[in-house]
Nucleic acid binder design. Sequence first.
DNA 1: ACACCCGGCGCC
DNA 2: AGGGCGCCGGGTGT
Length: 549
Amino acid sequence: MFIALSSPGADLVDAVTLDADAVETAREQLTRAALPAWVAQREREAPRWVWADTQRWYPPLLAAGVRVARCVDLRMCRTLLRNAAATAGTPLADAPRDAWDAPPATAEPASDTLFELEQPVPDDDPVAELRLQRATIEASATPGKLALLTAADSVGALVAAEMRFAGLPWDRDRHDRILTELLGRRLPGARPERMEALVGQIRVALDDHDVNPDSAPALLKSLQRAGLRVSSTSRWELAEIEHPVVAPLTAYKKLSRLFTANGWSWLDAWVRGGRFRPVYVPAGVVTGRWASDGGGALQLPKQVRGAVVADPGWKLVVADAAQLEPRVLAAMSGDAAMARAGRAHDLYQGMVDTGAVDDRNQAKYGMLGAIYGGTTGESGRMRPRIERAFPRAMAFVEDAARAGERGERVSTWLGRTSPPGGEAGYDETRSAEDLDRTRSGQRAWGRFTRNFVVQGTAAEWALCWMGALRRMLWQLGGGDDDPRALTERPHLVFFLHDELIVHTPAEQADEVADALREAAAEAGRILFGGAPVDFALSVAVVDSYADAK
DNA sequence: ACACCCGGCGCC
DNA sequence: AGGGCGCCGGGTGT
């Protein structure tokens, strides 16, 4: 058996066996089994699909014409529950590691036998695993929060597959024009025109007629030979130097980045039929953030966002959570003063208005320093003032940092727990040098755990936002299970940590904008109940992504 | 030939 | 002495 269906009230209502090679017939089988009932059921009562890997099963189902309302991604949830501090002493905590703990299968069925054995096989009953996970959640220290977190991660997995199915609208011609404008004409067998010209200038300025600026070691030697006192070729170090090579080299680096990461070959590899379909990896980051694997969706540079263009008669609704992490910190720590600053649409401006700091820049760097553990520059200078103005928020992140320094694990609001790691004690080796290294390692781990609780909880807020919005869009699109709704009615096309893009028929754009705001408010309520923290959004209805903000 | 690491830089 | 990522080309190791 590969897939089971469950509903909260009735435990398992039905079970469907899907042969891996017969997914094309899925719609027929599933319609017979359960689908008509779903359409009538309220969302609350809707059954969940229960499977090992959303990324394994959902794409072929979408292709076969099945849209799934809710699911449990067993492998994702197994990892989460296995690592969570709150599941100490539960059935899962004592269970030996098995196939469900293995990383998800990717792409093709593996030819490697060992690899194949690590994947759950039909004998690994998803129903049994589901029961184990439910028992684990119920026996945990925080059942409500873990139930929410597993649901949130799972809905994220559905959205990731749906966004890849729909694709981000991408205009090849506009992308090509952006590239040509910035990089110059494409030259066969060489860099684009403008980049070649810059290489020429760099070589003249360094009096080195064949230096390759793409080779950091060679470039560094050449820079030093020309008398520049630099220890690397990085832009921030070059910025301190006055020399004729700095301007063309800085310009070259900028263009080179665009050319190699998002140039014509990227376009050929990742854009088909007017859609960019990146590979998302939900919960791929330790903090619970999504990662990507191919396409670089989460690093889409601003330079090329002009190529993201709505279809004729359609709009993009671009929504961005304003200063999400500080707001999340305010809610977690119960810092009333910070919540008050967040009453303003711009929390940083709110900090200025309440007199905590003098200007927006101080607010921004002060806050980021508090969250990342910065000690130098503006963030270090602002530290005492932030501490005075927002003592509870500051104490909260300080506690997380101290715990990390002591080698303890920390957890997000919903209970995702940081990995063990940290810096172990310093046994027999206790030279002064070792001691320094150990302390600096402990401080680094403290910065990680400090950031973990905030970044991870912000990721949880974003998942709740996305899940709520998805449900609203489902309603807006007519509420049936037809996957054409994922391309022909308002649908999610992009997610970037604290930002969502919906592609929608123009006449529904305002409704979608309202839904985005409602969903943000709902996410705040679901996570933090009555905490008086606003989660402000910037929402823009645009034709091109570049026009947002 | 391939696998991996690194510097540098894009995003949040 | 600022957290988390992915991608590229170059470089090194096997």
